[in-house]
């Protein structure tokens, strides 16, 4: 029991931190520009693919450094030549634009890399067990993922709170007009933040690619979950996104690891149902089965009962 608990926690932590790397960029972009970037997870996918291609020729570590840079530049270009144009037409048009972008990136990835799964591998240096507990191994690569994520957050935190740019960004989040009036080039800041946000997604893609497999559907798989996180956490709240990321990560890994079901719950109350009952599917539910829908259930509940999310202040 204890081993399940520990490993579920560790895996939840890995997933949660990875999710936060995506969610933090998305949140930054949303707070500054009011745009929920539907294509955010697509940049994550691009990160994985670029890193894969680079790793074929120059090895994993080159990919880790250059793939996010390429993705960031691409993101900045998208902001400059696409999003800025649509901006005048309002938030719905922006949301629709990023939706279309997600669609196009998925098709473009299939165009350039094909439909099959790529064998993007973690580097050999990290192919050992970091530790063994109760006979189960915890791979060094997962440890590396945790280290990278935490390292990036500390860096991000320092930039945001200590540097001049960070202070301008923080001010632009809450008072974009004032910042513009103070003579700062807000469009440039927007472009930069969009670039950095997408580059962060790129990093997530690079390190997640080998574990979560690199295939054209990887953006769709994670995309809506990241959306769920920023909404649950409260749109525009970094702290909220952090809590929600860990929450969803842990929720999913625990739900998968457990084998509790509806039956056990009903047994607890001494109720039993015949197996040929019309609602047998409902009584037979197990937690691993419902794991994929839990985030969405949470999303809908949060939106109904607390539309601002856990830590959000903004109402529309």
């Amino acid at each position: 029991m204890l081993d399940v608990l520990i490993f579920a926690t560790l895996n939840g932590l890995v997933t949660g931190l990875l999710l936060f790397m995506l969610a933090s960029g998305l949140t930054l972009i949303f707070s500054m520009m009011g745009v929920l970037n539907f294509a955010h997870a697509s940049f994550y996918m691009l990160g994985a693919y670029f890193a894969y291609s680079l790793s074929l020729y120059f090895g994993f570590w080159t990919g880790l450094i250059f793939a996010p840079l390429i993705v960031g530049v691409l993101g900045a270009l998208v902001e400059r030549y696409g999003l800025r144009r649509v901006h005048q037409a309002g938030h719905v048009a922006e949301l629709v634009f990023t939706f279309g972008l997600a669609f196009l990136i998925e098709e473009a990835v299939q165009f350039f890399w094909g439909r099959d799964t790529k064998s993007y591998q973690s580097p050999d240096v990290l192919n050992f067990a970091l530790f063994t507990l109760f006979g189960q191994e915890f791979s060094a690569y997962r440890g590396f993922m945790i280290a990278i994520s935490v390292g990036i957050f500390i860096g991000l935190y320092y930039v945001l709170t200590r540097s001049r740019v960070g202070i301008i960004i923080q001010a632009a989040i809450t008072h974009p007009n004032t910042v513009a009036n103070l003579g700062h080039n807000v469009p440039l800041i927007f472009m930069g933040v969009f670039g950095v946000g997408t580059a962060l997604a790129g990093v997530a893609g690079v390190i997640a690619g080998p574990v979560l497999t690199t295939f054209p559907g990887m953006a769709t798989v994670l995309g809506s979950i990241v959306f769920v996180i920023v909404v649950i956490g409260g749109l525009g709240s970094l702290a909220g996104a952090f809590i929600a990321s860990l929450l969803i990560g842990l929720l999913q890994s625990f739900a998968i690891a457990s084998d509790v079901g509806m039956e056990d719950l009903l047994d607890l109350f001494g109720i039993s149902f015949p197996y040929d009952h019309a609602l047998a599917d409902l009584w037979g539910l197990t937690l691993p089965q419902v794991a994929p829908i839990l985030p969405f259930l949470l999303l809908v509940l949060v939106l109904i009962f607390r539309p601002t999310g856990l830590m959000g202040k903004r109402e529309e």
Partner: peptide, 26 residues
Amino acid sequence: KAGTVFAMISLGIGELIAASSLIFVD
């Protein structure tokens, strides 16, 4: 609400029902 909140709820419910459809086999 309209706008982003509505869009998010519609997305959530869409995913919820699509995922549930694989569970409720009957």
